[in-house]
Amino acid sequence: MIVRIMGEGQWKLADSHLVELNKLDDELLEEMDSGDEDGFRRTLNALLEAVRRLGAPLPDDALEPSELILPAPDASLDEVREMLSDDGLIPG
């Protein structure tokens, strides 16, 4: 699976990492629903760090279609809300 972090690039991750990413995505949704700005920021950074840690970065000139697109680390709560589907940022 190819994951894009907006403003940073793309990472290739094994599908087996979806469980960990979905857990963080669920936490992020809860914090967004409750308006917990500090928790939202902490969990968004943890989610992006997990992608960086678990994935292999693709070269900057690679133009692979991204299966997941995640917000930039400095995205606001409102900007992330606009990116959400019914399942959050990560389907499943």
Rank of each mutant, 00 (worst) to 15 (best):
L13Y: 08
G92Y: 08
S16N: 09
R4L: 12
G88D: 05
S66F: 06
G7C: 09
E82P: 06
G7T: 02
A62L: 05
S16Q: 13
S76P: 03
G9M: 05
D87G: 05
A56C: 09
D36Q: 13
A62M: 09
L47A: 04
W11E: 00
D78T: 09
T43L: 00
M83Q: 10
P91I: 13
P73R: 14
F40M: 01
P59M: 04
N22C: 11
T43E: 00
I5R: 01
S76C: 15
P71M: 06
L44Y: 11
D26F: 10
D33K: 15
L48N: 03
L48C: 02
D33E: 12
E49R: 15
E49M: 10
D15M: 12
P73Q: 13
M83V: 03
E79F: 07
E64A: 08
M6L: 11
E30V: 13
F40V: 00
K23V: 12
S66K: 02
V19F: 13
G55H: 11
I90L: 03
R81L: 08
E31T: 10
L70F: 07
M32W: 08
W11C: 03
I5A: 00
L47K: 03
M83T: 12
L44P: 02
D61V: 13
L18E: 15
S16A: 14
E27H: 12
M6V: 15
G9D: 00
G35F: 14
K12M: 07
D61I: 13
E27N: 11
P59Q: 05
D38W: 12
A56P: 00
L28C: 08
D33H: 11
P73D: 08
L28H: 04
I5C: 06
D86C: 04
M6F: 09
L68W: 07
S66N: 13
E79N: 07
R53W: 05
M83N: 04
L21A: 02
A14N: 12
R41N: 04
S76D: 13
L47T: 02
K23I: 10
P59K: 06
R4P: 06
K12I: 08
D15C: 10
L48A: 05
A46N: 07
D87N: 07
H17W: 11
L84N: 00
L89A: 00
L24F: 04
A46E: 11
E82L: 15
I69T: 14
M83C: 02
A14K: 13
S34M: 14
L24Q: 02
